[in-house]
Design a protein around this nucleic acid. Structure first.
Lengths: 71, 71
DNA sequence: CCCTATTCGGGTAATTTGGGGA
DNA sequence: AATGTCCAAATTACCCGAATAG
């Protein structure tokens, strides 16, 4: 399995989601428990998160106003 | 799982941005509210800031490249 | 020097987050 | 590596007053 295929995976581990939000994996688990983030369970009981959902939440927010030219 | 994710985490906490600008964390929040700085929200409502943007703002003053002795 | 608008920091209360340990 | 729980630190949003331009 090469590294390139990984960017196409649809599911993210808790650590990967935590890294993208710059929070602890525990916090991601809290979000899932609070129903703020949909999760899928592995057969071992651990959670996986939808990558498109995470990416959508990451890009939610606002760009700064168009910065006029410094001239 | 590979290590490629590491380089993608470019988010700063409010305290980290405040430290770079030598201001209060509240002031950074004020900049975000004013739209001067783009922010990403955690699902709990806390803000994360893009390191690229912060670094760009810190260096965009056009400081002279030659920094002689500060005597 | 005075006046005015903006920015910054202090204080409080409520929520979220992170560290340590089970 | 991940889960669930307890507690301290961080962040948020609100107020207000002081410092800084212009």
């Amino acid at each position: 399995m090469s590294v390139i295929e990984e960017s196409a995976e649809a599911l993210l581990t808790p650590a990967e989601v935590a890294a993208r939000f710059r929070v602890d994996p525990k916090t991601v688990t809290r979000w899932a428990n609070a129903g703020k983030l949909s999760s899928i369970r592995t057969l071992g009981g651990h959670r996986r998160y939808r990558r498109d959902e995470v990416d959508a939440l990451l890009t939610e927010h606002g760009l700064p106003e168009t910065m006029p030219t410094e001239s």
